[in-house]
Amino acid sequence: CHSECLGNCSQPDDPTKCVACRNFYLDGRCVETCPPPYYHFQDWRCVNFSFCQDLHHKCKNSRRQGCHQYVIHNNKCIPECPSGYTMNSSNLLCTPCLGPCPKVCHLLEGEKTIDSVTSAQELRGCTVINGSLIINIRGGNNLAAELEANLGLIEEISGYLKIRRSYALVSLSFFRKLRLIRGETLEIGNYSFYALDNQNLRQLWDWSKHNLTITQGKLFFHYNPKLCLSEIHKMEEVSGTKGRQERNDIALKTNGDQASCENELLKFSYIRTSFDKILLRWEPYWPPDFRDLLGFMLFYKEAPYQNVTEFDGQDACGSNSWTVVDIDPPLRSNDPKSQNHPGWLMRGLKPWTQYAIFVKTLVTFSDERRTYGAKSDIIYVQTDATNPSVPLDPISVSNSSSQIILKWKPPSDPNGNITHYLVFWERQAEDSELFELDYCLKGLKLPSRTWSPPFESEDSQKHNQSEYEDSAGECCSCPKTDSQILKELEESSFRKTFEDYLHNVVFVPRKT
């Protein structure tokens, strides 16, 4: 048989008469490798580009789960590009990614509803959504962080984005990388972005840091009482949809009607710091009717980097990364020049730590249904340095008659930039024990000054392991946590139920 035959053949030295091919099969003959313009397919066939392209389009058009959109890589027609490569849609070739590779997620039936953290986790790592997304989240724990972890990498949506009755959302900033909504599939009414009845939605994105392009379709905003109209108009300008909307697409009466839409800028007039305090004062603000001013709200939190936005980490279910302080308005003076500047002394802060701070007014709604208010920009203030805590785990070892090696770990709280350490030492008198000992005694162990690591005695271990207080009263049991108490109650309830079950099964009433 021919060298490319495997198993047997019907005619000697003829690659077209093989029972099976050793390498690849091409047009009725066995070959060692697939010549151009053919590609290896499933490690035994040679196919042309049209064959591989037909497989790709067949799966793409069917949208069946589990099928493969075949691509070409290293002269092979394979189910998908290997790690580190992405497909070129024009020629199906796998090309190296520039940075992290995109991950295209194809949605069944063309859309997916995100109504819980669990459903959001199914899209973790996706960068391109081939379909439409509907966000409908009523509640949950730590929602802002969970949504950002699972949806934060999405850069492109081919269909539309719909935010509907998501009472738990305060902001859409968890879509931190969303840059493009194509609108290839539109919501009824030709809408590519749809926001309806979101009672706590206050911000779409921080438009000073976020760009969003909507290729096709219109915007729809109705019944978002805490979303200011200025935020919607800003989205029109940034996304390129200005002029597409009709009169009733953006409701003037049901958007922002319960919001404090600040239209003035508060400026800080005085800032002073110490290692654990920050004193702030800002310019006074009074609405047209000074009785509408209820006070100020001061927001602050630790910020290692200057990239904080107002609604980071917030949701309507209680999660809030900001510390909020309510401040009463100052006494009002008739003389504008003698107006008191409101302020606040922030206490209990960490030394040498940068804080993000902003302040906003708290006002009631005027009778004319106009909203007044003022808010400052987010500023960054760093507390002063102070003395560091003591170095940890000092170790001293003498390696000769004239040297001592000293080692330690950095302090747990540096409280500033540590530039150097101060080492103090003092000579001590020799131990009298060394002169009084009889060095001729056998088995004498000389006193040693070398360091030995501390260890816990058996008594201390027994005390720590004991669940009861000892007789001397030195140790006591740790208080039980809520989960331990709940577990004990469940076990007790189970024992009672099981005992009742045994009584009912074992003891049967005697027939009379």
Rank of each mutant, 00 (worst) to 15 (best):
Leu280Gly: 01
Asp315Met: 08
Thr323Trp: 15
Asn136His: 11
Pro288Leu: 09
Asn224Arg: 00
Asp115Ala: 13
Glu231Phe: 13
Val308Ala: 15
Thr353Arg: 05
Met297Asn: 15
Asp384Gln: 02
Gly243Phe: 13
Leu180Ile: 14
Asn255Gly: 06
Leu108Val: 10
Ser321Val: 15
Lys162Arg: 08
Leu169Glu: 02
Leu169Ile: 02
Ala145Met: 14
Ala144Ile: 15
Ser338Ile: 02
Asn198Thr: 03
Asp292Ala: 03
Leu362Gly: 12
Trp322Asn: 02
Val117Leu: 09
Ile404Val: 08
Arg369Asp: 05
Pro329Val: 04
Leu362Cys: 04
Ile135Tyr: 01
Thr371Gly: 03
Asn334Pro: 14
Asn248Arg: 09
Gln314Val: 04
Asn224Pro: 01
Leu219Ser: 08
Ile181Val: 06
Asp249Leu: 11
Pro288Met: 02
Pro304Ala: 06
Ile327Tyr: 05
Tyr160Met: 07
Leu133Pro: 01
Ile135Ala: 03
Thr241Phe: 12
Phe220Tyr: 08
Asn334Trp: 08
Thr371Leu: 11
Ser119Glu: 04
Thr383Gln: 00
Arg247Glu: 03
Ile114Tyr: 04
Gln354Glu: 05
Thr215Asn: 13
Thr113Asp: 15
Phe299Glu: 06
Glu302Tyr: 08
Ile129Met: 07
Ile134Ala: 06
Ala144His: 07
Leu298Phe: 13
Gly240Arg: 14
Ala385Lys: 13
Glu264Cys: 05
Ile378Cys: 02
Gln121His: 11
Asn248Gly: 06
Leu219Val: 12
Arg369Trp: 09
Thr361Lys: 02
Ala259Ile: 13
Ala259Asn: 05
Arg291Val: 10
Gly131Phe: 02
Ser401Leu: 09
Thr127Gly: 14
Asp377Met: 11
Phe358Val: 06
Leu172Tyr: 02
Ala195Ile: 15
Gln203Val: 07
Tyr372Lys: 12
Glu237Gly: 04
Pro304Val: 04
Asp115Cys: 02
Glu156Pro: 00
Val170Arg: 03
Glu231Gly: 13
Ala195Tyr: 00
Leu265Ser: 11
Asp276Gly: 15
Leu345Thr: 10
Pro287Glu: 11
Asp312Thr: 12
Gly183Phe: 02
Ser402Phe: 08
Phe174Asn: 02
Lys301Trp: 06
Thr118Trp: 12
Asn320Trp: 14
Thr383Ser: 05
Val390Asn: 08
Asn387Ser: 07
Arg124Gln: 03
Lys209Pro: 08
Tyr160Phe: 08
Gly131Arg: 00
Thr213Trp: 07
Ala259Ser: 10
Ser400Val: 11
Asp292Tyr: 06
Gly343Ser: 10
Asn200Trp: 03
Leu293Tyr: 03
Leu212Thr: 08
Asp257Ala: 03
Asp315Leu: 06
Cys261Glu: 02
Phe220Asn: 12
Cys228Thr: 09
Pro288Ser: 05
Arg281Pro: 00
Ser230Leu: 07
Arg179Ile: 11
Cys228Ile: 05
Val359Phe: 02
Ser158Ile: 11
Trp286Met: 04
Glu187Phe: 09
Gly110Tyr: 08
Phe174Asp: 00
Glu302Val: 05
Gly131His: 02
Glu264Arg: 07
Gln403Met: 11
Phe299Ser: 01
His106Met: 11
Ala251Thr: 13
Asn340Glu: 05
Leu204Met: 06
Thr353Ile: 14
Gly240Ser: 06
Tyr167His: 04
Glu246Asp: 14
Pro287Val: 10
Arg370Asn: 15
Thr364Ser: 12
Arg247Tyr: 04
Asp326Ile: 05
Lys409Asp: 11
Phe275Met: 07
Arg165Phe: 13
Trp286Pro: 12
Leu161Gly: 00
Leu151Ser: 01
Ser401Tyr: 10
Leu298Gln: 00
Gln216Met: 13
Ser274Leu: 08
Leu293Asp: 05
Ser401Asp: 03
Phe358Gly: 09
Thr273Trp: 04
Asp115Leu: 11
Asp377Val: 08
Val128Lys: 08
Gly217Cys: 07
Leu219Ile: 07
Lys112Tyr: 14
Ser230His: 02
Pro329Glu: 07
Thr118Gly: 06
Gly189Lys: 02
Leu331Val: 09
Leu280Arg: 00
Ile250His: 02
Trp352Phe: 03
Arg244Ala: 12
Tyr355Thr: 00
Ser173Gly: 10
Thr323Ser: 10
Leu123Ser: 01
Pro388Ala: 05
Trp205Cys: 04
Asp326Ser: 15
Glu264Gly: 06
Ala168Leu: 11
Glu302Gln: 15
Asp377Ser: 09
Glu283Gln: 01
Asn340Met: 03
His210Arg: 05
Ser269Met: 05
Thr127Ala: 08
Gly295Phe: 15
Tyr300Ala: 09
Leu331Asp: 10
Arg164Cys: 08
Ala251Pro: 07
Ile379Trp: 04
Val128Met: 03
Leu293Gly: 03
Thr353Leu: 05
Arg244Thr: 07
Glu122Tyr: 07
Ala195Ser: 09
Val238Glu: 04
Ser398Val: 07
His210Thr: 03
Cys261Lys: 01
Gln403Ile: 02
Arg138Asn: 04
Tyr270Arg: 03
Lys301Gln: 07
Asp257Lys: 02
Asp249Trp: 14
Ser171Ile: 01
Ala259Pro: 13
Ser402Ala: 10
Val170Glu: 08
Tyr191Ser: 14
Ser401Ile: 15
Leu406Thr: 05
Gly243Arg: 12
Ser260Ile: 14
Ser319Val: 10
Thr118Glu: 08
Leu204Asn: 03
Leu133Gln: 00
Ser321Phe: 10
Ser119Leu: 08
Asp326Leu: 01
Glu302Ala: 05
Ile404Leu: 03
Lys277Cys: 14
Glu246His: 15
Leu201Cys: 02
Gly110Pro: 06
Leu345Phe: 13
Gly139Ala: 07
Ser400Tyr: 14
Tyr194Gly: 12
Ser402Ile: 02
Leu252His: 10
Cys317Ile: 07
Ser319Asn: 07
Asp115Trp: 02
